[in-house]
Design a protein around this nucleic acid. Structure first.
Length: 476
RNA sequence: GGCGGCAUAGCCAAGUGGUAAGGCAGAGGUCUGCAAAACCUUUAUCCCCCAGUUCGAAUCUGGGUGCCGCCUCCA
């Protein structure tokens, strides 16, 4: 079974055929580090993390590169406002990035290149473009001459005429065509700068991704990803620069773009000011719940945000986790008998879940549909546990499959609150005592005490549930 | 103005020619001292509206309505 994905460049679902058999090279446009990242950034990060994990599951040797834009207008502006050094500011938010990313269970990229560490490579590209006549120098700035690149507009699906018709770009006297964009910017007073053939300056935004993608992945790499708002101008310009400087090779083969998160049906964005920082949302909901919410909708559909949606996600995720916990509990009790029939209903469900999951994911990473396979497996496990006859083999298969499929999407369904080994042993002993006291109270029909213990423990984060075989407890 | 996207139950959300996945919420039941969890049953004669193509459409075509995005930094 092969993976099919929607290629923004062709606007078609295409079969994924990598440049090099068995390998997948992915470049994702990471955040500009002048603040903590918001939910919109998180969607992009989680989506491409899922893409990466799934391709690994499919057996590809994946190289995943995600940059940090650590020098640009916004960073400089913010640093000026706060009276600090722009590099220090960028460095800080790069560090903070990894904290939030970890909470969302995003695997660090194989390479996290920073723009400021690739100035030389960028200058080389600009120089080459200038040599080829695709770029021109004007008073310390260098611009890309859009008219000289025939394919300009192929990604965003519009012609130069279309763009100019609707363009309200500031008329810059230095530009030959209003759509020309900066490759290199002359440094203003007090701004960070690097020496270059055109004087002191700094790179334009788009050039960094061209330089770093080509450096780490080479021409014609497999997947270039990012948020939909990067299609124009950022990715369009990346293509122009990169393919302009290459000799006929394509820059990237497949372009993937995720849709936006909206607030009250309006795009969440930094400029509108209606954004929610992941750092803040984490105060109210755990990272895996946020991730579960984000992947509950296909990545190319818009996703509206409010707390209620996270509550729904939280309950759904709990359902999956409960099922895993219950299965594990049963497995610890069931005495392994000889394995008999393999035609067990549960085994069939396990196989079906695996198949459905993979079919959904093969079809343009349809994680929302893949969820259904997870839930169906969970329900079958639960209902199996209610039966008398239990086969350890079937149950083990079901349990490990649910865990495995969850993990492919980046969920650890077995995760409990972290407790160190020694503490765990002590906690177990304490809980044994607590449950014994409570059981005595229940025998005496002292419901007040029994309920008090249960309620107070819940506040602490320990759930007590009564079953016919005695009480169970777990951390939540 | 140019280009593009979306419209499925109370809410969220798959499905894109063969007769509506899944989750949350709700209702009834089982279990329970109660609760929680879990299980069973139930919840869209219908997929924004109109016309058309077809044996057959939520799915294709045309028209309409509504919402959104890109065209300027933004995931």
């Amino acid at each position: 079974m092969t993976v099919r994905l929607f290629n923004s460049l062709t606007r078609l679902k295409e079969e994924f055929v990598p440049r090099e058999q068995g390998k997948a090279a992915i470049y994702a446009c990471g955040p500009t580090t002048y603040n903590y990242f918001h939910l919109g950034n998180a969607r992009m990060l989680v989506v491409f993390d899922m893409v990466r994990r799934y391709l690994i599951f499919k057996g590809y040797d994946v190289t995943y590169v995600q940059n940090f834009t650590d020098v640009d207008d916004k960073i400089i502006k913010r640093a000026t406002e706060e009276g600090c050094d722009p590099f220090v500011l960028a460095r800080k938010y790069i560090d903070e990035y990894f904290k939030d990313a970890k909470a969302l269970n995003i695997i660090p990229a194989d390479v996290h290149p920073k723009a400021t560490e690739h100035i030389f490579e960028m200058i080389e590209i600009v120089r080459k473009l200038e040599e080829k006549g695709l770029a021109y120098h004007a008073e310390g700035d260098v611009y890309f001459a859009v008219e000289k690149f025939p394919g300009y507009g192929k990604l965003s699906g519009r012609s130069l005429e279309d763009m100019q018709a609707g363009a309200r770009v500031e008329v810059d006297e230095k530009k030959r065509n209003p759509m020309d964009f900066a490759l290199w910017k002359k440094a203003k007073k007090g701004e960070p700068f690097w020496e270059s053939p055109w004087g002191k300056g700094r790179p334009g935004w788009h050039i960094e991704c061209s330089a770093m993608a080509l450096k780490y992945l080479g021409p014609g790499f497999d997947i270039h990803g990012g948020g939909g708002d990067l299609i124009f101008p950022h990715h369009e310009n990346e293509i122009a620069q990169s393919e302009g400087c290459l000799d006929g090779e394509p820059f990237a083969k497949y372009w993937m773009h995720n849709a936006f998160i909206t607030i009250n049906q309006e795009k969440m964005s930094k400029s509108l000011g209606n954004f929610f920082l992941v750092r803040d949302v984490l105060q109210k909901f755990p990272g895996d719940v946020i991730r579960f919410y984000l992947l509950g909708t296909h990545y190319r559909s818009p996703l509206d945000f409010d707390d209620e949606k996270l509550v729904m996600a939280s309950k759904g995720l709990d359902r999956l986790k409960n099922s895993v916990r219950l299965a594990k509990e049963a497995l610890n009790k069931v005495l392994p008998k000889e394995e008999t029939l393999s035609e067990d209903e549960l085994i069939k469900t396990v196989q079906a879940a695996r198949k459905d999951f993979e079919e959904a994911m093969d079809d343009d990473f349809n994680s929302a549909q893949a969820y259904a396979a997870l839930f169906e497996l969970a329900r079958e496990i639960n209902s199996y546990l209610a039966k008398e006859m239990k086969q350890p083999y079937a149950l083990t298969q079901a349990y490990s499959t649910l865990l495995e499929l969850g993990r492919i999407l980046g969920f650890d369904l077995e995760a409990e609150e972290a407790v160190s080994g020694e503490e765990e042993g002590k906690l177990g002993q304490v809980m044994e005592l607590v449950l014994e006291i409570r059981q005595n109270a229940r025998k005496k029909k002292d419901w007040n005490t029994a309920d008090l213990i249960r309620d107070r423990m819940k506040e602490i984060g320990i759930v007590i549930e009564d079953t016919t075989e005695g009480a169970r407890w777990y951390l939540k």
